[in-house]
Amino acid sequence: MRVAIAGAGAVGRSIARELIGNGHEVLLIDKNPGSIKPDRVPDAEWLLADSCELSSLEEARLQHCDVVIAATGDDKANLVTSLLAKTEFGVPRTVGRVNHPNNEWLFTEAWGVDVNVSTPRIMSSLVEEAVTVGDLVRLFTFRKGRANLVEMTLPDDSPYVGKPSGLVPFPENCALVTIIRDGQVYTPDAEQPIEAGDELLLVAPADVEDELERLLAPEEHKD
């Protein structure tokens, strides 16, 4: 897979190293000469250019990329880069970094963003996930599928403690993906009982999240 990353700062370089380590081709683009540091990621291609300029993206041959990641520290630049990648070059997948939480609403398909990654939202979700029991915490939104990755730590008084996961009447279009117990990851088995304190990771559309909370933790979410 060929990936172009706009923004060769610490975030962009870290993403590049990870992708290269997984066997992908990576091009790092930045308009700041001080950010062009090939020695930091020697296996990547580097391009000194403005990713908001159409001519720069033509030079980068964006039409041959499978994914474009807009990872600069400027939300406006990330939006423009994503929009150009999607509309002018037909890039199949775009990922946009959200720096300021007030701008998150802009990072949608209308601006060419398939997936937005908001650091403030992720951090707040991780904090909630670490301290809450019986509340559903949204960890990630799948923009294409209109669904969310959500987590709940099952409370002691859940009516499904000790019952096989296959007997839990999950809402329509909701799926149990993983159970985390005592630091171990378990693939859901319809015959395996779920226990108090289990972290349940589920994929669910937003409109069933409240129903899911009331199902798994009714005492915490009485009407």
Rank of each mutant, 00 (worst) to 15 (best):
R2D: 07
R2V: 04
I5T: 07
A6M: 15
A10Q: 13
A10K: 15
R13M: 04
R13T: 04
A16N: 05
R17I: 06
L19V: 08
I20V: 10
G21I: 07
G21C: 02
G21W: 04
N22Q: 14
H24T: 01
H24K: 14
L27D: 08
L28H: 03
N32V: 02
S35R: 15
K37L: 04
D39T: 02
V41S: 04
P42R: 02
W46L: 03
W46V: 03
D50P: 04
D50T: 04
S51L: 03
C52A: 15
E53D: 14
L54I: 00
S55L: 12
L57H: 10
E58P: 01
E59S: 13
E59A: 08
A60N: 12
R61P: 04
Q63M: 06
Q63C: 00
D66E: 06
D66C: 04
D66H: 15
I69M: 08
A70R: 09
G73K: 02
D74A: 06
D75Q: 11
K76L: 01
A77V: 13
N78S: 11
N78T: 08
T81E: 11
T81P: 11
K86N: 02
K86Y: 01
G90T: 01
G90W: 00
V91D: 01
T94K: 07
G96D: 10
R97Q: 11
V98L: 10
N99L: 00
H100N: 15
N103H: 12
W105E: 05
L106N: 02
F107T: 13
F107K: 15
T108F: 09
E109I: 05
A110G: 11
A110F: 11
W111N: 06
W111R: 02
G112S: 07
S118L: 09
T119W: 05
R121T: 08
I122V: 13
S124L: 12
L126A: 10
E128Q: 14
E128F: 08
E128K: 14
E129Y: 11
G134T: 10
D135E: 14
L136H: 02
L136A: 09
L139W: 06
L139A: 03
T141N: 00
F142R: 09
K144W: 00
G145P: 00
A147P: 03
L149V: 04
E151P: 02
M152G: 03
M152R: 05
P155I: 13
Y160D: 03
V161E: 03
V161W: 01
V161L: 07
P164T: 00
G166S: 12
L167V: 15
E172S: 01
N173M: 13
N173I: 03
L176N: 14
I179S: 05
I180P: 05
V185C: 12
P188A: 02
D189N: 12
A190I: 12
P193K: 05
P193G: 07
E195Q: 14
E199I: 01
E199W: 06
L200A: 11
L201K: 08
P205F: 11
A206S: 15
V208Q: 09
V208F: 10
E209N: 09
E209Y: 09
E211N: 08
L212P: 09
R214I: 03
R214G: 06
L215H: 04
L215S: 05
L216F: 09
P218A: 10
E219K: 15
E219C: 01
E220I: 06
H221M: 08
K222E: 12
K222N: 11
D223T: 10
